[in-house]
Design a protein around this nucleic acid. Structure first.
Length: 210
DNA sequence: CGGAAGATCCACT
DNA sequence: GTGGATCTTCCGA
């Protein structure tokens, strides 16, 4: 009993992340993020991701190589968190992928609450019973629901405070693929099909992808 | 050193 | 559908 429970919470190993961002983004769908917060385990199932390829990807913070203080956070070995602040008020959680020279990552865009939903509602300042997607149906919402901020930068994803465990795998035909959200400025890269969503999932973010 | 824009979300119309 | 919040990051002068 104890053994099977421990196995169930075994974190994905660093080798899982040390592959291309595109592959990791696909395979993270269905996995669970577990965030230890205030003595409680908060958990969401990943239902939407985006891959950011690094130096050659104009939409990525890693574009052009490790030139700035922020982009250097991406140029580390895969398997750790990269968290940044956007629009002065929202945090976004990424997992760093590939090798230290790649500067690639996967943005976690949406999750379905699995455990600790009451605390997540409180962190999101939602009072009544929320609609699907209100708790963690967007990158900023997900970070707020899981109490994630830049203090978790470079936190290994095998940590007690933040880990990702494999759970259900999602078959290819249940994954919708499309262009990434909010990167219209990125020229040709804006069209690359690097957004992955569990098809028709009610907890996915906007705009909807079919 | 100033200013523009951003991998977003929410309230309002 | 539109705009405001809010501040870090980055680029150009």
């Amino acid at each position: 009993m104890m053994l099977s429970m421990a196995k169930c919470d075994a974190a994905l190993p660093p080798a899982f992340y040390r592959r291309s961002a595109e592959v990791v983004a696909r395979e993270l769908l269905g996995c669970r993020i577990i965030r230890r917060f205030d003595g409680e385990s908060l958990s969401v199932r990943v239902v939407e991701t985006e891959a950011y390829l690094g130096a050659e990807d104009r939409a990525s913070h890693g574009w052009g190589g490790p030139r700035t203080a922020r982009s250097r956070l991406l140029y580390v070995e895969g398997g750790v968190a990269y968290v940044y602040l956007i629009y002065g008020m929202h945090h976004c959680l990424n997992v760093v992928t590939g090798a230290a020279t790649d500067g690639s990552a996967v943005l976690i865009r949406a999750g379905e609450p699995v455990a600790g939903e009451g605390t997540m509602r409180r962190l999101r300042s939602l009072t009544d019973s929320p609609k699907p997607g209100e708790i963690a149906g967007g990158p900023g919402k997900l970070c707020q629901a899981l109490a994630i901020d830049r203090g978790l930068n470079h936190c290994p994803l095998t940590s007690r405070d933040l880990r990702i465990v494999g759970d259900r795998s999602v078959s290819r035909d249940r994954i919708a693929v499309g262009p990434r959200v909010g990167v219209a400025y990125a020229g040709e890269a804006a069209l690359w099909p690097l957004r992955f969503v569990i098809r028709d999932h009610p907890h996915a973010s906007r705009p909807r992808l079919v």
